[in-house]
Amino acid sequence: MEIVCPAGTPASLRAAVKAGAHTVYCGFADETNARNFPGLNFDRDEMREGVKFAHDHGAKVLVAINTYPRAGGEAIWHRAVADAEASGADAVILADLGLLAYAAKHHPGLRRHLSVQAAAANADMLNFYASEFGVKRVVLPRVLSVPEIAAINAETEVETEVFVFGGLCVMAEGRCSLSSYATGLSPNMNGVCSPASHVEYHDDHGALSAKLGGFTIHKVGADEPAPYPTLCKGCFSAGDATGHLFEDPVSLNAEKLIPQLAKAGVTALKIEGRQRSRSYVAQVVRNFRAAVEAQAAGRPMPEGMLAQLTEGQAATAGAYKKTWR
């Protein structure tokens, strides 16, 4: 199976390739991709050099242009598609129907993947995107069980890619407005979920509280692990009850499910984390490359050593095994 690895910077791209990534995904340093964070992403020269480095080492590069173009601002997204093709990228990852139509018409030779942001969660949708826009691969949303993924693959020729590690969104992806509600900025339009510019941390004698857009979304004691400052991981009080309303602050780790995902017909395994460091990228990629090599050889899955990298320092198999409360 192919592993698709994140790179927020050229250094991370090189780290991913050296650690064994078959494919790396990254984005331009603007609002066209869903990790539009300060100090992150690639300018045009860096993208060209990154693609060359990956190709020289036998790896592919996918360019994520997976936010939804602003009315009147479409030219920014159109330019990103053209520049991705000019850089030599192997495919673009798109979410918006209009942008898919634009890319299919003006850049027919550029392979198109459907982003998780499009929330395509059944075979009819996959087949529609394939027939109308020539989409070759769909990144499935993180709300499907393994049998559901198998059912989709049984009814489509489109390649499927699923997340196996990293941050977990359980909302209908591409349609979550929580960040927008609190800050006015969203991953869908601006490429930022819970933008750092709206985050404040306060350390009060070891207790850490986090505010997003002025709302306190969680407070953890001195000995508790800290989560990301996202509303979906917030800890709220209502009446006498206090708890994580949407989801617990844990990361996805589906490493043990790789054999089942292979059996379900999945083509590629995606690792989340373009906002993470090259250290994270190298460790996670090395781990998952070893796992897919073991799977291909029929060996047992190796023991992972990734718990320290997970949010909340805890992991879940997420929707793949629907055991949520």
Partner: peptide, 15 residues
């Protein structure tokens, strides 16, 4: 590049 900043933040080693 030996440690990941987010991981150190999660573990509260980094403030």
């Amino acid at each position: 590049g030996a440690y990941d900043g987010d991981a150190l933040f999660f573990s509260r080693d980094l403030v």
